[in-house]
């Protein structure tokens, strides 16, 4: 067992510290050391997007990032999307459009969609489809997800 490393990071705006093996993934650190359970493991190889988080605003698969890489950075997960009791427009629209079924891909897709809208508040449907192509969903067939994100984007543009 190699020496454990102390990592100081920020998760959803809150300071967080943990000790980890240098080979542990950020995904495992979030779930096992910090109890951030909205981050899901789908494949562990960066193909399904269920573990999507942001690292200093950049969308990453947390199964492909080491926990120690979070040192001094800001991690964003689905748990940080709502402002208290007030849901993010994307969250609200996912409920309204019934854009989820089993729900285990939902946190990753929300994080990915939020990152897109921060860069491009007015994506075309094609841009959105290809942006989300790295987030697999086995239940919905994606249609309601696309509609929910496009609707949320429109609402967010009006509000801004």
């Amino acid at each position: 067992m190699s020496k454990r490393i102390h990592v100081s990071t920020t998760v959803n705006g809150d300071e967080a510290d943990f000790l980890c093996d240098p080979r542990e993934t950020l995904l495992d650190c979030l779930r096992d050391h910090l109890g951030v359970m909205g981050v899901k493991e789908g494949c562990g190889t960066g193909d399904c997007g269920a573990c999507s988080v942001t690292l200093d605003g950049r969308l990453v698969c947390s199964c492909l990032v080491l926990g120690v890489e979070a040192e001094g950075k800001e991690v964003g997960t689905v748990e940080g999307m709502a402002a208290g009791e007030v849901l993010h427009p994307l969250q609200r629209k996912f409920i309204e459009h019934a854009a989820l079924q089993c729900g285990i891909c939902t946190p990753g897709i929300l994080v990915a969609a939020k990152t897109l809208l921060e860069r491009n508040p007015d994506p075309t449907e094609t841009e959105l489809r290809y942006w989300l192509a790295g987030n697999l969903c086995r239940c919905t067939g994606y249609d309601k997800i696309i509609r929910a994100v496009m609707d949320a984007a429109a609402e967010m543009r009006e509000a801004s």
Binding site: G38, E41, V78, M81, H97, A98, Q101, G103
Partner: peptide, 21 residues
């Protein structure tokens, strides 16, 4: 009636618990 999934508010906030959670 068209009503969304009962656990939808839990899913979108990452609170829905699966066995591994």
């Amino acid at each position: 009636k068209s009503l969304p999934h009962d656990a939808a508010p839990l899913h979108v906030t990452g609170q829905a618990r699966y066995v591994d959670d």
